Simulated assay, not measured.
Amino acid sequence: MVSGLFTQVSATADFIYEPPATAKNACRILVKPNLGYPKKPPVTVSMGVLGRVLNGLRQANPTAEILIVEGVCSPVSLPEIASRNGLYELMDDGMRLIDADTLPMQEYPNRLSRRENGEASPHPVRFPTMLAPALLQEVDCRISVGALKRTVLKEQPLISASLKNLYGLFPRSRYKARSPHSRGQLHRPSVPLVLQDVYFTIGHLFDGAVVDANEKFISVDWQPDRGSAVPVGKVIWGNDLLAVDREACRVADELTPDYVEAIEQMRNRVEK
């Protein structure tokens, strides 16, 4: 389990990002923003919040290479989405934007497959390993910057924040289903269940999380890019994805997703 958990909440206008300790001496930092759709906030993370995250990292570490990595969910390319949203104006010479789908990949073992003292840990839901960028193992610090969204899948609400944001790191070539632009395989048997595999393959590697809750996005159905914005006016951040997502739900008056509690319980068993 992550030791020394902390979460912080700020009014959006007052947000000053304080990076995790691992960022301060890192040579390379990976930032995974929610920028998978050619849409403005709150479908995607706002440039105001992302800009303050990048600025906070740069203030804490003037020499690190900062890699902004995302995999899109539409026919529109990542550079085009970044250009439309104004990301390039926030980047200095030590920052680079990378499409996750273009990176070399490797299989990450699911920690739910481990055995401790001859006893089996909880089983993977579907994936004993998952394919994701090898870069995750080659950087010194990893930050997820998510937007707070509620959609409806199979007549159940689904909260997307910093953990669900990691879906964009998985290659569409491996995880596509009917649409070549999405990762439909990661919706089977359900997103809340597959998020357990996501956490225990790559999610546990992340050093920090930020959730942009200046506005929360509410969809009437499964579509994560069509809906309405509800003002919240907050940013939530810390050094643990689950704790940050839990706090974001509390601040935004949303029920804590069952998957957060399930993963927390499994993490206690796997890491004790």
Rank of each mutant, 00 (worst) to 15 (best):
I98A: 05
I29T: 04
E119K: 13
I81C: 10
N25F: 09
T151N: 06
R114M: 01
I16L: 10
D92E: 05
G48H: 15
T12S: 12
R115V: 07
A262P: 02
Q156N: 13
L67Y: 01
G56A: 07
K149R: 15
L166T: 13
A23R: 02
T102Q: 15
R142M: 13
M47G: 07
Q196C: 08
L112N: 02
L54A: 06
A120Q: 02
E247K: 15
S162Y: 07
P171K: 05
R226K: 13
H204N: 11
V9D: 11
G227D: 09
L5N: 10
C73D: 10
M130K: 07
L148P: 10
P109G: 03
V235D: 05
L112E: 01
V194G: 03
A243C: 05
E215T: 07
G203C: 03
Q265P: 01
L131R: 14
P124F: 08
D245V: 11
R269H: 00
L131K: 14
V2F: 02
L163W: 03
S160F: 04
P19H: 04
G118T: 04
R28A: 02
D207R: 03
N34C: 13
Q223D: 14
P257C: 14
Y167L: 15
R52C: 05
S228E: 07
S182I: 05
N214K: 14
V220I: 06
E116V: 04
P128H: 15
R174W: 08
R126N: 04
D92M: 02
L30K: 04
P189T: 08
G238E: 11
P128C: 05
V69W: 12
L169I: 08
K272W: 00
S121H: 13
E155D: 14
L158P: 12
T7D: 07
V145A: 14
T151D: 05
Q156P: 11
L158I: 13
L54N: 03
L242S: 07
S144Y: 08
P231E: 12
Q106Y: 00
L87K: 09
L166E: 00
P124R: 03
V194M: 05
R188Y: 08
Y199E: 01
N61Y: 14
D225A: 11
G146Y: 15
S74N: 09
V9C: 07
S77Y: 02
S190T: 12
H204M: 01
A177K: 13
L195V: 05
V31C: 04
G208I: 14
I159T: 15
H123C: 07
D93I: 03
D212F: 15
G94I: 01
R114T: 01
V31P: 01
E261F: 02
V31A: 03
L158A: 04
P104L: 06
L87F: 05
V145L: 12
M95E: 13
A120S: 09
L103W: 03
V152D: 03
L78C: 06
L103R: 06
T12P: 00
F127G: 08
A213Y: 11
V43S: 13
S182H: 12
N61T: 02
P171L: 02
S3P: 11
A64M: 04
S77H: 04
T44I: 06
R226G: 01
N268C: 01
L50A: 09
N55F: 13
L50C: 10
K40P: 00
G184E: 06
E254Y: 01
G94C: 07
P180N: 00
N239G: 03
D93P: 01
A11H: 12
P33C: 12
